[in-house]
Design a protein around this nucleic acid. Structure first.
Length: 912
RNA sequence: GCGGGCGUGGUGAAAUGGUAGACACGCAAGUUUUAGGAACUUGUGCCCAAAAGGUGUGGAGGUUCGAGUCCUCUCGCCCGCACCA
């Protein structure tokens, strides 16, 4: 029966042509700037000034949403890097998510800013150019066009007027400006040090770009090279980068990845006198409680004292020096991979020197060993073989003494002879003088107090995080805008001698004072344009291609006017992306890089009063409200962007410390169970699917695949199914023009609508797109069976579906609008609805209350009871009863008139 | 080794502590079609010929009137970090 009725609501004919519909709306949205927010007039993000994370914690989010209509909502996705192959479907995934979210937020009444751009500078793009045999500049021109075309057909509600490209001189002049500001703040310095070098990319890499000893991009084994490089002093912010993490509304996983990478360890630096020579060795340890058991000292091959011995400053036996030279040379040439391949087999050379342990007067032999890391702590450790497995391995190999100082749970107090006996856990101190009998935590505090009092040690915090290596010996990046002047350096007359420089460092030591630093920065003539050169390929000599071009690097000193040279390295591509979210809001400002206070904006040469005004007003958009991107950037981009923001805050350019209030890491899209790769031939080009099914279908399908943070498996049969569904929706509603609809929804219809609205709203808020879409499908199944639909149901359905399939829903709305909707007149187009009205039915359904009690029916205990309350008194009564189990049983025994028990259905109680 | 996460049908997966498997894919049968495709209808956790019934969220316990969900242990898988002193 219902089948026949259902048919009456369905179309006589259907023609669903997604391509035509989508192009039509895309061009309309574009030409009318529908999604271009007025940047200057948005209200601040939250009226109270609290962050969304805080509001959420206080459960105020729903309430606040209504209070802050018209407030700025900065909805950002990580911009893609353009490749010859075109847009990756992984990006379609992100962009579908961010756009569904943007459209949802817009309906809640926010001003939403959803910008897009291209991360076109960097090794990635340059390698693509080399592979295709083209010049990076031509490569960029070509891919830019293709990428923007592909980005357009997704139907995303991008603010197209604010697009940017990192290789645009109007962009990278500010990247260079940023470099200069960091330099002026003492956060950029140049240093000669062993660095990671990728022999294939022929450039140095930052620590973060080395994964398992291999290059992040090409997976070549990374070598160690001594090169003079530019670094950013991100370690200055290690503490803040770590402590701020707690306040962020990010997934625990990403937060943890950052915490681990920063790697804070609290301990103590202990300085030991070296017997017989005028030297000391400072070690870092987190376990000073075991110090009575210390029997040796081990130095990293890079350690200063080792250098002093090798260079003859500290004189020891010549034969040992030769042995050490050989060992150090071998160790420093080893790549990470080689070191791992050798396993944990310890090696080392005894220096013949001893250090005295003041606690015991034990003469600890000083060794050099490559299991000690030059970059952690002080590059030296004190060996306690009884209570550290690595120390034990070292001690047994070289016959060093092992002393037990902790007894663990097993009560074993015998001498430690086997590795299984090494006691690294909790326990009680023995053989440790005044520490005896204490547990290790108490002993740790006690001994640190003692050492500090005796004056040979100081509590210290060590971090795993190292400074950010910023220079690259490549072509395709912003030239580092520094000028070296030999003459000024000779005179000791460099930037550091200017009033500005002196003021900057007057309260602290100068972090950077070596001679290589002497020079000038041409701040007022930025951008330092990247010239077109033919031989742009990396050379592998430790110099960048620009070093072959005197016409580039030869210049005059901005200070003395003499001959000077420019830096020829370019900066890391991660610098480009560390601040792009700031620039989106100022792409039309020629003289100011990003929104900032009037006071600061005025300091930019050439800034017009209008520009200063814009810069000031647009600050309401910061920080980024919602950021969606890949989890692979957990410790790279996200850490760098946080660091840059903090540095800019300290310089007074921005007034927030954390750039991304909320970050959501989406999952990975695989294809038919395998990772996409060209060699497998299973790379998805979104173009093919958009052409065949339309963007609405692709978007909805991608988001339906599975939980957004887990990605999913892309299957052609799956997208077919989604296409069927989209078509069904089209047919149902486009058929409405000939069908009937009624004034009011049925009770069941209302309940369905209420449930779906509530469910989908909540799902969208937490980016559970897959379940939101499933709810829409369920509701469709219900609607399709109805003999007729109400205008409210149809309109609500279209609104709820719009975040996923914006084109089709808008087209349907237009079709239906022209067919005598018996509703209040709609003068504006559907996109105005996008911006105004998210349906809520809470008020209407206040009468329905869910009570959770134990109920016995037919001798069986059952669960949830849905009670329909007739009026406010009923509702209050039921809520009160729900709070008190005891009264509920009474209530159920006496006051309920009917109990309707439908097998397979929820229990319904009708209140008198 | 440290840290985090996950184990539910043939598949992707749903389930504020309350009918386990929503929704979709796939599969099966049917209607329609010259055929293929498409569309529509019905069915589909497992066991049993069917019904009745039983059983069922990696495993073992526990809390609870009630556990996929909370707690303890255990097995298996995935992802970070790692010779970090």
């Amino acid at each position: 029966m219902s089948n026949n009725v259902a048919k009456s609501a369905k179309p006589q004919k259907s023609s669903f042509d997604p391509t035509t519909i989508e192009l039509k709306w895309q061009s309309k949205w574009g030409s009318e700037d529908v999604y271009q927010p007025v940047l200057d007039s948005a209200k601040p993000q939250l009226a109270s000034g609290t962050t969304i994370a805080e509001a959420k914690k206080q459960n105020k989010i729903e309430k606040d949403r209504h209070l802050i209509k018209g407030s700025a909502f900065y909805d950002l996705t990580m911009f893609p890097y353009p490749s010859a192959e075109g847009l990756h479907v992984g990006f379609s995934y992100t962009s579908s998510g961010i756009d569904a979210y943007a459209r949802f937020e817009r309906m809640l009444g926010h001003e939403v800013f959803e910008p897009i751009g291209l991360d076109g500078f960097g090794i990635h793009s340059e390698n693509h150019a080399i592979k295709t045999g083209s010049h990076p500049i031509e490569h960029a021109e070509r891919t830019e066009k293709n990428f923007y075309r592909q980005l357009h057909v997704t139907g995303n509600s991008y603010a197209w007027k604010n697009k940017l490209e990192t290789y645009d001189p109007e962009y990278y002049r500010w990247t260079q400006w940023l470099f200069v500001q960091l330099f002026k703040s003492g956060l950029a310095y140049k240093k000669n040090s062993p660095v990671n070098f990728c022999p294939s990319c022929k450039t140095v890499l930052s620590d973060e770009q080395v994964i398992d000893g291999r290059c992040e991009r090409c997976e070549s084994v990374v070598e160690k090279r001594d090169l003079e490089q530019w670094f950013f002093k991100i370690t200055d912010y290690a503490g803040k980068l770590l402590s701020n993490i707690e306040s962020l509304d990010w997934s625990e996983k990403v937060k943890l990845a950052q915490k681990n990478w920063i790697g804070k360890k609290s301990g103590i630096n202990i300085t030991y006198k070296v017997a017989g020579v005028d030297e000391t060795v400072t070690i870092f340890t987190t376990r000073p409680d075991t110090n009575f058991g210390a029997t040796f000292i081990a130095l990293a091959p890079e350690h200063q004292l080792v250098e002093k011995i090798i260079s003859g400053v500290v004189k020891i036996d010549a034969q040992i020096v030769r042995k050490m030279q050989a060992y150090v040379a071998k160790a420093t040439n080893k790549s990470e991979i080689e070191r791992q391949a050798e396993g944990k087999e310890k090696s080392g050379v005894f220096t013949g020197l001893y250090a005295t342990n003041p606690l015991t007067d034990y003469q600890m032999p000083i060794w050099v060993s490559d299991f000690v890391l030059g970059g952690f702590g002080t590059g030296a450790l004190v060996g306690v073989p009884g209570h550290d497995k690595r120390d034990f391995e070292f001690a047994t190999k070289f016959g060093l003494e092992i002393i037990r100082v902790v007894v663990g749970k097993d009560g074993d107090a015998s001498p430690i002879a086997k590795i299984e006996q090494v006691q690294e856990d909790e326990g009680t101190m023995i053989n440790s003088g005044f520490l005896n009998g204490m547990d290790i935590h108490k002993a740790t505090e006690k001994i640190m107090d003692h050492i500090e009092k005796e004056g040979y040690g100081k509590r210290e915090v060590a971090y795993h995080l190292r400074d950010w290596l910023i220079s690259r010996q490549r072509y395709w990046g912003p030239p580092i805008p520094m000028i070296y002047c030999e003459a000024c350096a000779e005179r000791g007359d460099s930037w550091f001698m200017t009033e500005e420089g002196k003021n900057h460092f007057k309260n602290g030591e100068w972090r950077v004072k070596n001679r290589e630093m002497a020079g000038w920065y041409p701040e007022e003539v930025l951008p330092m344009k990247l010239p077109y050169i033919k031989n742009f390929k990396p050379m592998g000599t430790g110099k960048a291609p620009l070093a072959n071009h005197p016409e580039f690097y030869e210049t005059t000193c901005p200070h003395c006017g003499g001959k000077a040279t420019r830096e020829t390295d370019v900066s890391d591509t991660f610098l480009d992306s560390s601040w792009y979210f700031l620039r989106y809001l100022a792409t039309d400002l020629k003289h100011i890089p990003f929104p900032m206070s009037k006071e600061k904006a005025k300091t930019f040469p050439g800034a017009t009063p209008e520009e200063i005004e814009h810069a000031d007003k647009r600050r309401t958009w910061f920080p980024v409200t919602m950021y969606i991107g890949g989890a692979e950037h957990s410790v790279l981009h996200l850490l760098y962007a946080r660091f840059v923001t903090m540095a800019l805050k300290d310089m007074g350019y921005v007034d927030f410390e954390e750039p991304f209030t909320r970050f959501y890491a989406h999952g990975l899209i695989i294809k038919d169970g395998a990772k996409m790769s060209k060699s497998r031939g299973n790379v998805i080009n979104p173009d093919d699917y958009i052409r065949k099914y339309g963007s609405d279908t692709l978007r909805t399908y991608l988001l339906f695949l599975g939980p957004f943070d887990q990605g999913g498996d892309f299957r052609d049969t799956g997208i077919e199914g989604m296409y069927r569904f989209v078509k069904k929706v089209w047919k149902l509603f486009s058929g409405m023009e000939n069908g009937e609809w009624r004034m009011e929804s049925s009770t069941e219809g209302l309940r369905f609508m209420h449930q779906t609205v509530k469910g989908v709203t909540e799902d969208l808020e937490y980016l559970r797109f897959n379940t939101a879409i499933a709810k829409l499908m369920t509701w469709y199944n219900f609607l399709a069976k109805q003999p007729s639909l109400s205008q409210e149901e149809v309109e609500t359905y279209l609104k709820l579906f719009a975040p996923f399939a914006p084109h089709m829903t808008e087209e349907l709305y237009q079709v239906l609008k022209n067919k005598e909707w018996r509703i209040e007149k709609k003068e504006k187009d559907f996109h105005s609805i996008h911006m105004s009205a998210w349906p809520t039915y809470d008020e209407k359904f206040l009468t329905q209350v869910t009570v959770t009690v134990a109920v016995q029916i037919n001798g069986k205990l059952r669960g949830t009871v849905v009670v329909d309350a007739k009026d406010k008194e009923d509702k209050a009564l039921i809520e009160k009863l729900a709070r008190e189990q005891e009264s509920v049983s009474k209530f159920l025994a006496g006051d309920i008139k009917h109990v309707i028990f439908v097998p397979g259905k929820i229990l319904n109680f009708v209140v008198r």
